[in-house]
Amino acid sequence: MAMGAADVVPGVSGGTVAFITGIYFRLLGAIGAVPSAFLHSFVRGHWRRFWHEIDGVFLVSLLAGILTSIATLANLITWGLETYPIALWSFFFGLIVASVWHVLGQMKERRWWQLLPIAAGAAFAWWVTTLSAGQVHPGATAFFLSGALAICAMILPGLSGSFILLILGMYGPVLTAVRELDLALVGLFMAGCVLGLLSFARLLGLALRQAHDLVLAVLTGFMVGALNRVWPWQEVVSWRTDSSGNQVPLEQMSVSPMRYAEVTGEPAQITVAVVALLVGLALVLLGEWVAGRRSQAPSAA
């Protein structure tokens, strides 16, 4: 459900949440196993073995949580971003900062040269967050390709699939297709998602097996660079009209709390931001502590 809630917000990655909750590698393994299991087990009628090979209970539980979250929490998160933007973005900021520490802790060895891929990943993610929103013709091909690109970003910590759709100019058309139950366009988008997910997850899993620490360093950089997108104080540079005819921010730029108060005429709420950030940090650290206690329980017994 946390992954679904994150994927609704442009700029927050469901992959980051998967890393925070400790299910990231299991998720990649399960998705990456689908093509091979389908050919060698499902097609031959070995359905029970297929279900076991793809970790079916885990995938179905995860998908159910994501869909439930999108259906039930999307409006709540949208309301929170409109009503308490500084507090909510600060909370997300704290989550990502803590997840950077968490990912670094997953490295088998720490070397000075790992700073280079971290810096490269941060620079790339920062550049992505500063891209101007484009506009492509929302035809069948655009729906299919945007689904493939968005899902790849969605499973990468630090890169938001919904933000990629926003950059491509497909965020509005996709939401409109879902809202209007345009099954043809939604089906094309989902087909792109399936193709991108199965191919990219397998590729990423292979990369992690071959160069574990290098890939984690790049992913850490992605999360560091993405902090620009979730910075609580943003100045709106341009606006767009959503599917309901309302004016919503299109391009934003990170500014200091003082500049934010000067431009918007609203208080910077620094105290609220610090408290929300600390809550986000504490939530991840508490999750790590609980996970550590559970992993030690069997050996202690």
Rank of each mutant, 00 (worst) to 15 (best):
L81N: 09
E82A: 12
T83W: 13
T83N: 14
T83F: 13
Y84E: 07
P85G: 00
I86R: 11
I86M: 02
I86N: 03
I86L: 10
L88P: 09
W89D: 10
S90R: 08
S90Q: 00
F91S: 02
F91L: 15
F91K: 04
F92R: 10
F93G: 10
L95R: 02
I96E: 15
I96Y: 05
V97Q: 09
A98I: 04
V100H: 05
W101I: 00
H102A: 15
V103T: 07
G105M: 12
Q106K: 13
Q106R: 14
Q106D: 14
K108Q: 14
E109I: 04
R110Y: 06
R110F: 14
R110N: 10
R111P: 02
W112A: 10
Q114T: 04
L115E: 09
L116P: 01
P117T: 06
I118G: 03
I118D: 05
A120N: 03
A122H: 08
F124H: 02
A125T: 09
W126D: 06
W126K: 10
W127E: 10
W127Y: 15
W127S: 12
V128M: 09
T130F: 11
L131Y: 02
S132M: 08
A133P: 06
G134S: 15
G134C: 06
V136N: 04
H137T: 15
P138L: 06
P138S: 03
P138N: 07
A140E: 14
A140T: 07
T141G: 15
F143R: 00
F144D: 10
A148L: 12
A148R: 02
L149F: 13
A150G: 00
A150F: 04
A150R: 05
A150C: 08
C152Y: 00
C152E: 05
C152R: 08
A153H: 03
A153F: 01
L156S: 00
L156I: 12
G158L: 02
G158D: 13
G158C: 10
L159Y: 05
L159D: 00
S160Y: 05
S160R: 03
S160I: 11
G161M: 02
G161T: 09
F163V: 04
F163E: 01
I164Y: 05
I164N: 06
L165M: 14
L168G: 11
M170R: 02
G172H: 14
G172M: 13
G172T: 14
P173W: 04
V174G: 12
L175D: 06
T176F: 04
T176W: 05
V178S: 13
E180P: 06
E180W: 09
L183V: 12
A184R: 12
V186C: 10
G187K: 07
G187C: 05
F189Q: 13
F189P: 09
G192A: 11
G192T: 07
G192F: 09
C193Q: 03
L195A: 11
G196F: 01
L197E: 09
L198H: 06
S199W: 00
F200M: 00
R202L: 11
L203A: 14
L203D: 00
L203F: 11
L204E: 07
L204T: 03
L204Y: 00
G205L: 01
G205A: 03
A207I: 03
L208V: 13
R209K: 15
A211G: 06
H212D: 07
L214G: 08
L214I: 08
L216Q: 10
V218H: 02
T220V: 13
T220I: 04
T220K: 01
